[in-house]
Design a protein around this nucleic acid. Structure first.
Lengths: 199, 199
DNA sequence: CTTGTTTTGTATCGGTCAGTTCAAAATGTA
DNA sequence: TACATTTTGAACTGACCGATACAAAACAAG
């Protein structure tokens, strides 16, 4: 029928995620996207319509993957809920330490980065982030309620507040990491945060 | 001797702070800076050398003002240290609620925003932020030690960890605010964070 | 008033931005 | 092999980027 694509759309999307993650939306040029994906300009625009549309798809893909990963850790019903929360924080710390060792600098979280860079003036990005935050807060709330039931989380605060606190703690870890904090410092933050859940 | 300036350099700097705060470094054009400050291009470049140099001065000015304000709250020796920490968090929450009511959206913190946007690839910005973080952590550490002495902070964690945790909490509040959290949610986060200090 | 010095507005610089155009290349089908 | 359809690469578009050139304007000192 027609000439077939010479590239895998999902692989290209992953490459785009990585560039946006490293450089942010504004600082990433379409040329950067061509270089990172290995695609020509025509293929990029033919497949993804515009830089902004590509960013939306990249962000959605990142948020989905991240939330799936986090949910897997938090839904492990074998362990006490507090342990699962600890595991989530460890995952974040590990992720930051990992990419710091790999590329020399911490990347933080594309979600957090985009909240800071774009949420205030890009309604499409804000909507994606808002939807993801709602979804993630629900998972956080559930694990807090489970923690109250299994006795591993003894805070008297309601699950909603604890979920918000966990969300803020993850963001705080990410920013601290980008600000230069090393693994030991991030672990200290995570452990201290746990004290608010199990005093 | 020569023609005098028709503008106040510090007022121009404040306008630049505001514009960088709202839009970030990359998304702010030199034209935006002209509009915000009311200066012509010549005056901007004649006074501040370059967009980047202007940003450095704006960032330094912001960080100084912010740290001075926070230090004033945390050094109020009349009150128990835990109350001072609570007051600091209230100040952050209040600041976010304020600018949300004013401009319709939360601005977060120029320091946090710059950590996220630039710290990884702009050594000059990273150095300013690093210097400020060290300075602020020292103040945080001092108030944690005071809290242990006056008995208002009962956590057994060392002051360094508590200071890092407070720093991360402030960043988490800022990001949560930019992500859409309202005053009540921010207050819940702040109160929950306090539980880690005075369990 | 002139002179020397600085600021200011305007016009402009080369470069890069996101995005388009278009013809050549590459396929499945007939 | 010839055709229809799509992808691909390269050249190109107008707009905007940060930064500069330069002369008119505005002052203080003499």
């Amino acid at each position: 029928m027609a000439r077939p694509r010479m590239f895998d759309e999902e692989r290209a999307l992953d490459a785009a995620v990585h560039v946006f993650w490293e450089r942010g939306y504004e600082a990433t040029s379409t040329q950067d996207l061509c270089d990172a994906t290995g695609l020509g300009r025509s293929s990029i625009y033919n497949t993804f319509q515009s830089k902004h549309a590509l960013f939306e798809r990249a962000l959605a893909r990142y948020l989905d993957a991240m939330t799936v990963t986090q949910t897997a850790v938090l839904d492990d019903v074998e362990r006490p809920a507090a342990d699962r929360v600890r595991a989530l924080l460890a995952l974040v710390v590990e992720g930051e330490a990992e990419c710091r060792k790999g590329s020399g600098r911490a990347l933080g979280c594309l979600g957090v980065n985009t909240v800071v860079e774009l949420a205030g003036r890009d309604p499409a990005a804000a909507a994606l982030l808002e939807r993801d935050t709602v979804r993630r807060l629900a998972v956080y709330r559930a694990v807090m309620e489970a923690g109250r039931r299994d006795g591993s989380i003894t805070s008297s605060r309601d699950a909603e507040a604890l979920a918000r606190f966990l969300n803020a703690t993850v963001a705080g870890l990410r920013v601290s990491s980008q600000g230069g904090a090393g693994r030991a410092e991030l672990e200290a933050i995570a452990e201290t945060a746990m004290d608010a859940l199990t005093p």
